[in-house]
Amino acid sequence: TFELKGKVGKVVKIAEDHYLVEVEGDKWIAYSDEKLSLGDRVMVVDVDGLKLKAKRIP
C-alpha cells in the first residue's frame, strides 16, 4: 500500500466519518483534513495501515 502515496484518485462515496476513494481501480477508505465532495480528485498523501489520507487537488 505504500506505493499508493502520491497517486491520484476520486471520491466515490461519503460516509459519516470517512470517504471511499477509488485509486487505480481499487476502492480504499480514506480520511482528509479538509471537507471533500463526491467526485473530487484527490492525491494520496499518506497511508495508515489500510486507510489513506487524501488531499483535494484541482
Rank of each mutant, 00 (worst) to 15 (best):
T1V: 15
L50V: 10
A30P: 00
Y19R: 00
G6S: 02
S32C: 14
A15M: 13
D46H: 05
L4A: 05
K13T: 10
R56L: 12
D48G: 03
A54I: 15
K13M: 11
P58E: 13
K10Q: 13
K5F: 15
L20I: 12
L20W: 13
Y19Q: 02
V45P: 01
R41M: 14
V8I: 13
D17Y: 09
D33N: 07
K13L: 11
G25M: 08
K35Q: 13
H18F: 11
K53V: 03
L4Q: 09
D40R: 01
R56F: 07
V23P: 00
I14Q: 08
L36N: 01
G25R: 07
P58H: 12
D17L: 09
Y19D: 01
D17A: 10
E3Y: 06
K27N: 09
L50K: 09
V21S: 00
V8D: 10
K5V: 15
K51A: 09
L20S: 07
G25D: 08
K53G: 03
F2W: 13
I29Y: 14
K10P: 04
D17K: 08
E16Y: 13
G25H: 09
K7Y: 03
V11Y: 00
A15Q: 12
W28E: 02
G9Q: 00
A15F: 13
G9R: 00
I14V: 14
L38N: 07
A30W: 01
K7C: 08
L20K: 05
M43W: 04
A54Y: 01
D46S: 05
K35H: 11
A30Y: 01
L4T: 06
S32Q: 02
L38Q: 08
L4M: 11
V44Q: 01
R56K: 13
D40H: 05
V21I: 15
S37N: 11
F2Y: 07
M43H: 05
K35V: 13
K51N: 09
E16M: 13
Y31G: 08
P58I: 08
V11S: 00
H18E: 12
V8K: 08
Y19K: 01
E34A: 06
K53A: 03
D33W: 05
E24K: 04
V23M: 06
G25N: 09
K10S: 13
E16G: 14
R41W: 14
G6I: 01
I29A: 10
L4I: 14
E34G: 08
E16Q: 11
A30V: 04
K35E: 12
A30S: 11
L50W: 14
G6A: 02
D40N: 06
K5Q: 15
I29E: 14
E3N: 04
V12G: 02
K35W: 10
D40K: 01
V42K: 00
V44M: 05
V12N: 04
S32H: 02
V8H: 11
G25T: 07
G9S: 01
G9E: 00
K7R: 05
E34R: 03
Y31I: 13
K27C: 09
K13W: 12
E22C: 10
D40V: 05
D17I: 09
K10V: 12
P58F: 09
